[in-house]
């Protein structure tokens, strides 16, 4: 595994369920941060269903990860595509190659290395659905990682599963030197896994019997695991409150404190922006979803971001909060 040479903050947007708006949120987060002055690279890691370029209005990406995998001599710089937005570069998951979700672990590692060596302020990863390692490994390399959910019960369930899978994958990597312990937290293969350790407390209880010295590693992994939550397509207060319930559930069973970044309301403007292939933060920065995104960006970057569009131009107001740690 390559070492991290980039000082960039990696923001992965994931979620257990497909179709909950991960790509749209990723694009607008990246656009907002780019407009705020950060050098942002938006990376499409949904290899099986790469469509992020469409949301940016890029018809045919000249090069993507699939070309990077299959063709030798493709330089990493060639993957960085212009988006037409200052400070924002884009890396396509597919390019001209249709691509496949079933990429090898080597390819995953190539991508991870590529990401870790990107020179940017912020790297936004748009992840695919599911809880497989190809997804979770990207999520676990991020900080902060954002889990996205919609208010529907099914999405909440999958989000919890995604968080737990990510956490246990992180713990599993802590136990890399002990395969027996890894089974306790490897839920990717139910036939081999110890399905009784499905919560952190049960895991620690089991570890206390088998390897008490590993409890500290578990606690460390739990402490370092700090996902954030965004509820997308909220329609009312009850929907917004779903995020609180999910955070409560995660805290109860995984002892993980999830940060509630915010919510994005359901709006036809989002759909319109997809149809027009213009991020809604650019199309109408004063719309409600745009305001929600700006609030989320403000929470992520510890700045007060405010975008105003007038006469076709976007005016940015950014005030850095004290002690934010972000370079304005």
């Amino acid at each position: 595994m390559s070492t991290l040479t980039s000082t960039a903050k990696i923001i992965a947007v994931g979620g257990g369920k497909g179709g909950i708006g991960k790509s749209i949120v990723s694009v607008n987060l990246a656009v907002g941060m780019a407009l705020a002055g950060h050098n942002v690279v938006l990376v499409d890691t949904d290899f099986g269903a790469s469509n992020l370029h469409a949301l940016l209005g890029i018809n045919n990406p000249k090069c993507g990860f699939q070309d990077f995998f299959s063709t030798e001599g493709v330089s990493p710089e060639k993957l960085l595509l212009n988006t037409g937005i200052d400070n924002l570069k884009f890396v396509s998951g597919a390019g001209d190659n249709p691509g496949s979700a079933n990429i090898s672990q080597d390819c995953i590692q190539i991508v991870i290395d590529f990401i870790k060596n990107l020179q940017a302020d912020v790297i936004v990863l748009d992840m695919g659905p599911g809880t497989n390692f190809n997804v979770i490994d990207f999520f676990n390399m991020s900080n902060p990682g954002i889990v996205l959910s919609t208010p529907e019960m099914t999405s909440v369930m999958k989000t919890f599963s995604f968080i737990r899978a990510s956490l246990f994958r992180s713990i599993n990597q802590q136990f890399s030197d002990n395969p027996e312990l890894q089974k306790m937290v490897d839920h990717s293969n139910p036939m081999q896994a110890d399905m009784e350790t499905y919560t952190v407390s049960l895991l620690k209880k089991k570890l206390a019997e088998i390897a008490p010295e590993k409890i500290a590693d578990v606690d460390r992994a739990v402490k370092n695991f700090n996902p954030s939550l965004i509820i997308n397509r909220a329609r009312n207060r009850k929907d917004i409150h779903v995020g609180d319930n999910l955070i409560r559930l995660v805290k109860k069973y995984l002892n993980v404190q999830v940060k509630y970044l915010g919510y994005i309301i359901e709006s036809d403007r989002v759909r319109d922006s997809v149809d027009e292939m213009i991020p809604f933060l650019i199309k109408d920065p004063q719309s409600k979803p745009s305001e929600n995104i700006q609030r989320i960006i403000s929470s992520l970057t510890q700045t007060d971001l405010h975008l105003v569009k007038q006469d076709g131009n976007i005016f940015v107001s950014k005030q850095v909060r004290l002690g934010s740690g972000w370079n304005a």
Binding site: M157, S161, V242, N245, L246, R248, L249
Partner: peptide, 9 residues
Amino acid sequence: YIDLLESFI
């Protein structure tokens, strides 16, 4: 709601 969610999870 949480109970129901737990039952599903």
